[in-house]
């Protein structure tokens, strides 16, 4: 099969963080980890092109995946491989976006990353094969990926035994009995000692590796971000009240607080009366300005970022999180305070 391989700027050998904003480029050969991959998948399959792109560009640009794939149009790919991205968040998100888009185009597609990578959920129906945590595990990672690529090319199903870590897709179907009757069956099974039976397994939540502490807040730029749906009155950009598909940014310049009547929350998940009466209850600008003037923080980032958390799919939320990280990283923000109208964990 004719294979296109997607990697980031770092593994293409063109640079590190300073090249993260670079757009996609194509080479008509296997590059970096692709060379080892090519040697393992034999003569039947050929990496006809490698596309690489900077991580900030690939994870922070809406149309990046389409742009990456359109570069390969002249090379008639049949199968797209992305990664391995290990635990790198932006790279993982980009790999997932590329394979999801390739799958939508009807191509075979497969990505490789670590199971903690925030991009994992974005691969859609394309399989994701487990990688090690870092490039130190490159050898075993590429061997597993090569075996999976060969199976995928042969039209075989990839399962856990192949190192598949993406969840199987959930599809809606009609059961024979109503949910209430099934609940009675389940409660009877449970009373009979069956603790395995369930229609739904809880997801494993991500283990986020915490960022280190900010060393000197009086020198740091701090951003305010919220998932409480706070927007200028009238909701000029149409933020959704639930199941958000977008996030927005609004300027805080020249403001010392957020006055009643000029901002409102559109979140449909709770009573917005308190937030509308005093929007600082959602985005604490008054206090943040005070801290800026006192010198407790170096600078308040001049705009706040906002989405609606209510009913928003975890995959969308993760995506927004990565985009916010890219955005704030570019603006040299060192810390962010996220206000969330949700339930704090119990102690």
């Amino acid at each position: 099969m004719r294979i296109v391989h997607y990697i980031n700027q770092y593994f293409a050998g063109v640079g590190g963080e300073e090249e993260a904003g670079r757009g996609p480029e194509l080479r008509e050969e296997a590059v970096g980890p692709g060379k080892r991959l090519q040697s393992l998948i034999g003569d039947e399959h050929e990496i006809v092109a490698t596309v690489f792109c900077g991580d900030d560009y690939a994870a922070g640009t809406a149309e990046a995946a389409e742009e990456i794939l359109s570069l390969t149009d002249d090379h008639d790919p049949e199968l797209v491989v992305a990664g391995p991205a290990f635990t790198s968040g932006r790279y993982g998100v980009a790999c997932s976006a590329v394979v999801a888009a390739a799958h939508e185009r009807g191509l075979k597609a497969i990505a490789s990353m670590h199971e903690d990578n925030p991009g994992l959920q974005d691969a859609g129906a394309a399989p994701v094969i487990e990688s090690g945590e870092s490039a130190r595990r490159m050898k075993g990672t590429i061997e597993r990926l090569a075996a999976a690529v060969q199976k995928l090319a042969a039209g075989e199903h990839l399962g856990e035994e192949d190192g598949r870590i993406s969840r199987p897709r959930r599809v809606n179907v009609l059961a024979d009995a109503p949910a209430a009757a099934r609940a009675v069956e389940l409660v009877l099974a449970r009373l009979g000692g069956d603790t395995e039976r369930t229609e739904l397994r809880p997801p494993d939540f991500d283990q986020v590796t915490p960022a280190g502490p900010v060393e000197d807040l009086s020198e740091a730029s701090v951003a305010l971000v919220t998932e409480g749906g706070l927007v200028p009155a009238g909701n000029p950009d149409g933020l959704e009240s639930s199941r958000a598909t977008l996030w927005l940014r609004y300027s805080l310049e020249g403001r010392d607080s957020l006055p009643e009547g000029e901002f409102e929350s559109v979140d449909g998940g709770f009573s917005t009366e308190a937030a509308n009466e005093d929007p600082d209850r959602m985005v604490p600008l008054d206090v943040a300005r005070e801290l800026e003037q006192e010198g407790a923080i170096g600078r308040l980032h001049p705009e706040y970022l906002v989405t609606t958390g209510n009913g928003t799919a975890v995959a969308s939320a993760k995506h927004f999180g990565v985009e916010w990280a890219v955005e704030l990283h570019k603006a040299e923000v060192q810390a962010a305070i996220l206000t969330a109208p949700g339930s704090p964990p119990s102690s």
Partner: peptide
């Protein structure tokens, strides 16, 4: 379940930690 349009996202945002029997 809130598993996203494609059904590939984690289905619950606040799953139970002790109970295991769930109807979807």
């Amino acid at each position: 379940e809130m598993a996203g349009r494609e059904g590939t996202a984690p289905p619950l945002v606040a799953p139970p930690t002790k109970a295991t029997a769930m109807v979807s």
